[in-house]
Design a protein around this nucleic acid. Structure first.
Lengths: 114, 114
DNA sequence: CTTGAATGCCTATTTGTTCGAGGTATAGTG
DNA sequence: CACTATACCTCGAACAAATAGGCATTCAAG
């Protein structure tokens, strides 16, 4: 039943994946765990979220994919491209802006006389 | 051309409106300006975003609406209900969770040996 | 007295992304 | 042989934000 647009999640999967892949290249299944760990269990993304985002980032040139065989297992490793680095910086800026705005609004005391 | 899903905005309009209305009751047109001010110009929401959210919050019982005439102008004032207060707290918690998770992920140094 | 800006409300449509549920296949363990 | 973990994938539903419009009123300027 796909309750789809949980608050505050739009753009987050893309940002997290780009950011994790800026540290080292990884494969999809690995990223599922990495997201949980990196966000300290605050955010968990299913494979149904990860793979489509990975594919769209590859198509847009932000990631490069390479199939590798590791211990009898076939994996698709994704690495950040120069374009992906730029996209990451763009998204970080956006995140900062939104986050600052929301913080300002939330900080405002409830019964301000100002 | 409705570039629709800008990153990181899902849930934000609802959160901001509930939060502003927790301070005092306001009308739609006023909220358009209030959002800009409260977020220090970081976030600007058009009327096309504000009004639909207001209506849906009223329908769900988070806001109560009352038509008032002020200086020859007819305005629809919205006030936070008890249910709206609860919804605000719920959203704030969600925001905190996502924000913490993203912060954790972004903080991680790029070349961690850990 | 007419024009335009500002106020004030509203809706239809586009867009595209997240999500759960499902499906496939292989490796390794009991 | 069954079962779990690994590893990849796709589909459809749900849904919310944004733009671009439209309507009506008030008020100031020319």
């Amino acid at each position: 039943m796909a309750r789809s647009n949980p608050p505050f999640m739009s753009g987050v999967p893309e940002l997290l994946l780009l950011r994790l892949l800026a540290q080292r290249e990884m494969y999809g299944y690995e990223l599922v765990r990495s997201v949980r760990v990196a966000t300290r269990e605050s955010i968990a993304l299913g494979e149904g979220v990860i793979y489509p985002v990975l594919h769209s980032l590859e198509k847009s040139g932000s990631l490069s994919a390479s199939r590798k065989s590791v211990g009898g297992r076939s994996r698709v490793y994704y690495a950040l491209t120069r374009r992906g680095q730029a996209r990451l910086e763009e998204l970080q800026g956006e995140w900062q802006r939104i986050q600052d705005g929301v913080r300002s609004a939330l900080e405002e005391p409830l019964h301000a006389a100002t």
